[in-house]
Design a protein around this nucleic acid. Structure first.
Lengths: 232, 232, 232, 232
DNA sequence: AATGAATGAGTGTTCATTCAT
DNA sequence: TATGAATGAACACTCATTCAT
């Protein structure tokens, strides 16, 4: 999962590689997110992660590698945490709403890092870019799956599931991308709630609507839902 | 409109300033869009626009200025061309659909430049960034206005107009941002058409639905609509 | 005197050359004095003197020319004004003291420009530097002449007249060079008065001392002497 | 003493910083002295000191830093070597004359660098300029102390000690500043000897004169005095 | 005679990367 | 494995000078 795929290291002990890379990437993601890829220097990453410059080059081939794995780290969070949050949630409508809620709250936790994926994917070498796009597609499929179950279960009328899922994903990303415009008008919970009204509800069948109503009764519009994402 | 506001030039003749700046920005937008802000050098811009390095600094204070005016140029296109396309369009539903169509086709024409606004706005100096965000807000209001008329005219049921408009805008931007994922599945016309189905149709009242149906009869699902934006 | 010697102009009318050069040099001396030769740009000189950049190159060959004539202008002031102030002064001791007073007050009026001669003479092309040094020598001879008359007249005992004169000149220059250290402790009049005590008085014969005493009685220690240099 | 105060280095090992800075400053002082601050490029300093351009920026913040430490180096020489030469010299008159001799011979050894302090102090950032002026004041106090002892010991009649000392300092600096005019007329030893006659002797009391005469008998007018400054 | 737009070599400075220790 | 001093190509930006008008 935390795949070192495509990125070679001069260090042999895989456990050490794992560990050190995590430390360095942690600092890199923070710095890239705050200041951007080109503005962040290797020196800064070295200082922030408490290792020497030379060591960074033992664990990463070059700066592009660090960016790649930084972006991968963010996308892996989506891919890992959304399913984790869906665990135990059975009803398709519940699953879709929970997925939206989960995605938005992860984006909220990683706000700057989420923006980074938009800012810096193009700075990646072409082959790496494709890998990142593949990872994004995979996350989209998570959402698309939820949508499909809703449709298949008769809770939602037929839609272009691919595009529908993409809209949902964009909506979640927007919480980071356009936070400057949104934060004055919505809390995260309100944002998710409005998102459901805007994107999900209109497509629900009678059966689906009933499910959503039941869900709302239980969760008071998601408002009491504790943030399950560990804040960073 | 093509506002040189906030950016001073060493050259006095305003006509010449207008002209040269346009030439240089033209090259800059292209290069920034293709390769990114930091990767693009002033040398490259100079060569691509056929002027000397020194001359660029007679028309722009520094590289940040060039980025700012490049982004402004793109946003100004939205702000100018969407109203132009709406001219003569009367019916609120028609206006909303036309706005979506117009926005998407402008984004299509400026594909890389539209991505640039997401990639590089954060590279701007903070005060400049605010100006760009203001310009984005203004374009959003164009869409929001269309939505409001639909609601006020009873063609659409009540919605959070701000968020609705933002969803529409994101959808249009997505055509550029996620073109790598969308182009295999949709032509531009199909994309717009699906967008209407996904974002507009579900909210229309009976009256609104009738209007949309009439509209579709006339325009054959937008599919025959010629691209009215001058390609760049 | 205001010699355009060694500096060619593209403009033929000598009166115009005289006039324009004066305007430009006026600005140049001020800017060079305040900010230094290398920091001052031709653009700044053009703006400050109210002429175009191109015109400057009609009246001066290059930037070095402007520096040369700027320095020459300052040295010419010494050479012109010191004799002017000595006019009508007969007694050798009086002449020497008046020369010191005159030199110091010119330096005071041209404070920054006087510093410029120390800062920037070395920036001149070698052949030009020699010309400036010649001009300095000429001013020194003015002082040396006064010293010689004192000695010849029996008012002063024998000294190395050349070195004595140089000490006097340095003392006058120091008012500009070390103004940061001197201005808190002396007014200009006090400085000159102390200078006479330090450099002249110890060398006076009895006859010389009497002359100085008479002089002081008349001029109240120079303290009431009005500044005869037109401030610039 | 060789104070790196106010200038930070990216390199941690203080011994290495000391060493490298010395190498680089050595080249910088030479180049600045010969060609001036603005004409000297970092490239030249790098080449002359045998290090890379980048390395210079590991040891100095910017070019201004290099100038500051260059000037400081020169002033530190005065401050260190004059007291060193005075060590063991007891008699006040002897001390004053020795100080003059020492100062002049240091100036002689650092001829161009001494000129640099006059040429380039104003090129320094304002806060740095003040530090340099403070250093100059400190050296002046060295001379002033000698003068004071002469007066206190009854070897010299009362004078403005501050100004007297300044005259002495100017005289020493003049050996560098006006070397083009002086070298044809005086050897260094003659210059110092004449300086004593011009500045010191006239103020000596009978007691002071006797001391000077004794001194001269011992040192044969300073003429045999070996240059104790290591030439650079 | 006068203008000022245009030029581009040259500057200080940065920073990814290497490599001796 | 780990360090961080050392490198130098590459960058943004400046400014003396030219020249068409």
């Amino acid at each position: 999962m935390r795949s070192p795929e495509h990125v070679a290291s001069a260090v042999s002990d895989p456990k050490l590689v794992e560990e050190r890379r995590a430390e360095i990437l942690d600092a890199a993601v923070r710095l890239f997110s705050e200041n951007g890829y080109y503005v962040t220097t290797i020196q800064q990453i070295a200082k922030a992660s408490g290792v020497s410059i030379g060591l960074i080059y033992q664990y990463f081939g070059d700066k592009d590698d660090i960016l790649f794995l930084s972006l991968k780290l963010v996308l892996d969070r989506y891919e890992t945490e959304i399913p984790a949050r869906l665990e135990g949630v059975e009803h398709p409508v519940d699953r879709l709403c929970t997925a939206i809620w989960a995605y938005c709250s992860i984006v909220d936790a990683l706000r700057h890092a989420a923006v980074l994926t938009y800012r810096s994917t193009k700075s990646l070498r072409a082959d790496r870019r494709t890998l990142i796009q593949d990872a994004e597609r995979k996350t989209n499929l998570l959402i698309e799956g939820c949508v499909h179950q809703c449709v298949a279960g008769g809770y939602m009328r037929e839609v272009d599931e691919f595009l529908f899922a993409y809209q949902v994903v964009l909506f979640c990303h927007a919480w980071a991308l356009k936070n400057w415009a949104l934060r004055d008008r919505f809390s995260l919970a309100e944002y998710v709630s409005e998102g459901v009204k805007l994107m999900v509800e209109p497509f629900l069948t009678a059966k689906g609507k009933a499910a959503l109503a039941a869900l709302r009764r239980r969760s008071h519009d998601f408002r009491d839902e504790p943030a399950r994402t560990a804040p960073r």
